[in-house]
Simulated scan of single mutants.
Amino acid sequence: MKAGTFTQIYIQLVFSPMNRHALLEKSIRPRLFEYMSGIVTNLGHKSIIINGMPDHVHLFLGLNPKIAISDTVKEIKRASSLFINEHRLSNGKFQWQNGYGGFSYSRSQVEKVYNYILNQESHHQITTFRQEYLNILKKHEIEFDENYLFEFFDD
């Protein structure tokens, strides 16, 4: 980063295992999320919190503007898939589904987003992943075509 360059960019990433299979069992999530946090840190970003459910993951990070969000997601998915498969943390070959959601937040929203991601289990007792994802898209006023969303199987 050059002298006189200052950034403060907070991004929430959301993505899912291939075909939204519930492969992220509770027993593997802490180990996986710690590994994913290491990937984020090694890319020069600041890992704030990573949490999720069996069928999706939320990553909240302070973005290093030198690295594109798409490259960040690509590397997180690539390296974490290798980690899951090499350590046999899932039955069969693990893959992430194509696509992701990337949402920006201001500094004043960091605590709220952190707590939201921290409390995924209680949140999903009343809201499906599909409802959650659509709500995030609408809240951020992102236009979308339902044909290009994740494959949701809870309809």
Rank of each mutant, 00 (worst) to 15 (best):
R130P: 00
E132C: 01
Q109T: 06
E132K: 05
S122C: 07
D155L: 09
H123A: 03
F153G: 13
L134C: 01
S122V: 13
Q125C: 06
I126S: 15
N115A: 02
F153T: 12
K112T: 14
Q131N: 13
Q120V: 03
Y133N: 10
N119P: 02
K139V: 02
K112E: 15
T127H: 10
Y133F: 14
Q120W: 06
T128H: 08
D154E: 15
Y133Q: 09
F144C: 02
L149R: 02
R107T: 13
S108D: 15
L149V: 00
Y148F: 12
F144L: 04
K112V: 11
E132T: 03
H123I: 03
E111H: 12
L149N: 04
E143Q: 12
L134I: 13
F144Y: 15
N115H: 14
V113C: 03
R107E: 15
N147Q: 13
S108G: 10
E143Y: 04
H123P: 00
E146D: 13
I136W: 01
H140F: 06
F129K: 07
F150P: 08
E146Y: 03
N115K: 13
D145Y: 04
F150I: 05
S108M: 09
K139N: 14
Y114I: 02
L118Q: 14
Q109W: 06
Y133E: 11
F129T: 07
S108Y: 09
K112S: 15
L134G: 04
L118Y: 13
Y133M: 06
E111C: 02
H140K: 13
R107G: 08
N119G: 09
E146M: 02
E143T: 12
D145P: 01
K112M: 12
E141V: 00
H123M: 05
H123W: 06
D145Q: 03
T127P: 02
N135Q: 13
F129N: 06
L149S: 05
R107W: 10
E141T: 03
Q125W: 09
L134D: 09
N147E: 14
E111P: 01
E143N: 11
Q131T: 11
E121P: 02
E151F: 02
K138N: 14
N135C: 07
H124I: 05
Q131R: 11
N115S: 10
V113E: 11
N115C: 05
I136T: 11
E121G: 00
N115E: 14
S122R: 14
Q125V: 01
E151V: 10
T128C: 05
H124K: 11
Y116I: 04
Q131F: 01
Y148T: 05
V110W: 08
F152G: 08
E111R: 12
D154T: 10
F153C: 09
N147R: 13
S122D: 15
F144P: 03
N119T: 10
R107V: 11
L118R: 14
E143K: 11
E141D: 13
Q109R: 12
I117R: 08
K138Q: 15
V110D: 12
